[in-house]
Simulated assay, not measured.
Amino acid sequence: MDDDRWVPPCVLLAVDLVILTLRGSRLHVLLIERGVEPFRGALALPGGFLRDQEEDIVAAARRELFEEAGLADVPHLEALGVYGEPGRDPRGRVVSVAYLAIAPRLPQPVAGTDAAGACWRPVEYALTASAELAFDHSRILKDGVERARVKLEHSALATAFCGETFTISELQQVYEAVWGVQLDPRNFYRKVQSARGFIVAAGPMRRTEGGRPARLFKAGPVQALYPPMVRSAQAVTEGPDGHKAQVTPEGGTAP
């Protein structure tokens, strides 16, 4: 090819954000209602184009998060992936850098700029076809949720969603909400206790709703869990016939 005749393609750079939190013991994702075309009126992840050639990509992500949803204090944004398939945006060739944050106690969003609305929606709804997320945001959200689930396997992140002290049952509820499964309490207790430094005993016992005392714990000194809290062979789901089944490492079920 003659280099003198080559013209670089026009590519626009954008950012998209998967912001996850727990609300009412369910995993929720931040979505906005688009106020402009394309996909006006559709739900989407917050995001947008870089303002100019001088704007840092992470700065653009934080700016869009504040402008579209009014969130300014979201903690560390983790790079999730780059999405640039041709045709993903009807406005032209758009490459998007996606970021992920999963954090406790995030506030109610407030829509602004080109967002007609902003809200927290349960992840199980947002991932259904009926949600009809704009662009390829269903794929980005799916990738973000899976990354969050893996983070709970390998880090002590789950304790951030508990109080200063908590019971094993309360910690299990966090895992069940993020993983989207029901866990066997005995297997979960054994996994937690085997992860050295994950949690430590804290103070007297607390009476539960059933009246039985439960031991209290607090976050331990480690951030990386070893061995990890793997999902395989401990998740319990209900099959179509109503029987309980364990989730296998391949994602299927075993009786």
Rank of each mutant, 00 (worst) to 15 (best):
L30F: 10
D2Y: 14
R62Q: 05
F188H: 03
K218N: 02
S194L: 11
Q53P: 06
E78S: 08
E37M: 09
P249E: 13
L183Y: 10
A72F: 04
S130Q: 08
F39N: 06
A126M: 03
K218I: 06
A160V: 11
A59M: 05
M229G: 00
S25Q: 06
V150Y: 15
E67D: 10
A115W: 01
A177S: 06
L127Q: 15
V94W: 01
M205A: 10
V82L: 10
D241F: 09
P227R: 01
A44V: 01
V145W: 13
P122D: 03
E68N: 06
V58M: 05
V174A: 01
D52E: 08
V110P: 07
G84A: 07
Y99F: 13
G203N: 04
I19T: 12
L27T: 15
P213L: 01
G84D: 08
E153A: 08
F49S: 11
A195H: 05
A158Y: 04
E64T: 00
L30Y: 07
A111Q: 13
F66V: 03
G197N: 07
V11I: 11
Y175M: 12
V82I: 07
V97W: 14
D136M: 09
F166K: 02
G251A: 14
E164I: 02
Q53N: 05
Q53V: 14
P104E: 14
F188S: 01
A202G: 08
C162E: 08
P213T: 00
A59H: 03
A254C: 12
D136N: 13
R93T: 04
R34G: 06
G197S: 09
R207W: 00
I57R: 07
P46E: 04
L133M: 02
R190D: 06
D73F: 07
T165D: 12
G92F: 02
T113H: 07
E67H: 06
D241W: 09
S232A: 13
V174H: 05
A214K: 00
V97S: 11
E85W: 00
G48P: 09
P86S: 06
T237H: 15
E164V: 02
A14K: 03
A61C: 05
A129E: 13
G87M: 08
F49D: 13
A42P: 02
L171C: 02
E170N: 01
V15M: 01
R147S: 05
P122L: 04
V58T: 08
A158V: 02
C10R: 15
D56M: 07
Q193L: 12
V18A: 07
L100Q: 09
T165Y: 14
E67P: 03
W6L: 10
S96I: 15
R88I: 02
L43N: 05
L43Q: 05
G92D: 12
T208H: 00
E170W: 00
A72I: 11
E124I: 08
E124N: 06
L141T: 09
V181K: 15
R62L: 04
D4Q: 14
Q173Y: 12
L157Q: 09
I57E: 07
V181W: 14
C162A: 10
